[in-house]
Design a protein around this nucleic acid. Structure first.
Length: 265
DNA sequence: ATGGTAGACCTTCTA
C-alpha cells in the first residue's frame, strides 16, 4: 500500500498538476496540505471520479488538510485537542479500511516564522499537542502513519546550506528537539529508515532560482508507528513533480513523498 | 544591501 503526502499550495490552483500526478502514481492514500479553500470549494468530484474517498478539513485562504483514499475512510477526526481557541485547519486523521487497516493523519505544522513571535510560540504549542495525540495513537498498537508538512528541517544534511537556516523557525534547536521527542515516543521517520540515494529534499522555494540550483530542504515527513515501520518496503520522493511544465498550472513548491507498506497478512 | 515568487482576495498576509 502506497501512502503519500503532498503540500499542494492551493488544491484548486494546482488541480491539473495534482490529477496528472494521481493518474501516474496511483497512490492508495494521499494526505494533502495547504488546500487554501473551505470545504465547499474542495474539488470532490475530480478525485471521486478517479475512485477516491475524500475527507476534508478546509479553511478560507490559509491552511486546510485532506485525506484521499481508494479504501473507505472511517473514524474521521478534524483538528487537534488542547487549544480551544485554535481555528487553523491543520490536522485530519482517519482509519483507512484496507484488508490490513492503517490509521493515517494529514499534518500541517505551523511555519512559526519569525522566531520569537506569537507565531513561533503557537508552533511550539502545536508540537506539544501533536506529541500528545501521537502518544495516544501508539497505545492503540495499530499501523499508524503521521504524514505531512512538519515545517521542520531535522538535521543539517536536510538543507542545502545550514547558515541560511540558522535564524529560521524551521531549523531552531527546540523545534528539531520537538521533532525528535515525537520520534522518541516510538515513531520511525520513514526516510531515515530508507533514504533515497539521489535526493533528500521535499521543498524548493519559488524564489531566487532555488529549484534550478537544487537549493532544497527536507520538511515533509512520514512518521510510522512500530507496527507500520515493521512493514516498510520503500520510500519515494517524486522530485520530478517540482519541475512539471503544465499548460495551465504551475508546480507546487513541495513534491509528493510516499511510503510503501506491505500489507499482506 | 536588496529583492526575488506564488496564492488568496481586496490590501495585505502567509509561506
Amino acid at each position: 500500500m502506497k501512502i503519500f503526502t503532498f503540500n499542494v499550495n492551493s488544491v484548486n490552483a494546482r488541480l491539473p498538476v495534482i490529477l496528472d500526478w494521481f493518474r501516474e502514481a496511483e497512490p492508495d492514500v494521499c494526505a494533502l496540505q495547504e488546500l487554501k479553500c473551505i470545504d465547499e470549494k474542495f474539488p470532490y468530484e475530480a478525485f471521486e471520479s478517479l475512485g477516491y474517498n475524500v475527507a476534508v478539513h478546509g479553511q478560507k485562504t490559509y491552511n486546510g488538510v485532506a485525506l484521499l483514499s481508494k479504501y473507505p475512510l472511517s473514524e474521521v477526526t478534524k483538528g487537534l485537542a488542547g487549544e480551544d481557541e485554535d481555528d487553523h485547519a491543520r490536522y485530519i486523521e482517519a482509519l483507512v479500511e484496507a484488508p490490513v487497516p492503517v490509521r493515517v493523519a494529514s499534518v500541517y505544522l505551523p511555519n512559526g516564522n519569525p522566531v520569537g513571535t506569537e507565531k513561533y510560540a503557537y508552533k511550539q504549542r502545536w508540537y506539544k499537542r501533536l506529541q500528545d495525540r501521537a502518544k495516544a495513537l501508539l497505545a492503540l498498537e495499530e499501523l499508524t502513519v503521521l504524514s505531512g508538512d512538519f515545517n521542520t528541517i531535522p538535521a543539517a544534511e536536510d538543507c542545502y546550506r545550514e547558515s541560511v537556516w540558522l535564524d529560521d523557525a524551521l531549523y531552531q534547536p527546540e523545534i528539531r528537539a520537538a521533532y525528535r521527542t515525537l520520534k522518541n515516543l516510538g515513531y520511525t521517520d520513514a526516510f531515515d529508515a530508507m533514504p533515497c540515494a539521489d535526493n533528500r529534499y521535499t521543498y524548493w522555494d519559488y524564489q531566487a532560482g532555488a529549484w534550478q540550483k537544487n537549493e532544497g530542504i527536507r520538511i515533509d515527513h512520514h512518521l510510522l508507528s512500530p507496527q507500520a515501520a515493521d512493514r516498510l518496503r520503500g520510500v519515494e520522493i517524486h522530485k520530478h513533480v517540482r519541475g512539471s511544465q503544465h499548460e495551465s498550472a504551475k508546480p507546487s513548491d513541495h513534491v509528493p513523498i510516499g511510503v510503501d507498506l506491505h500489507t499482506e497478512n
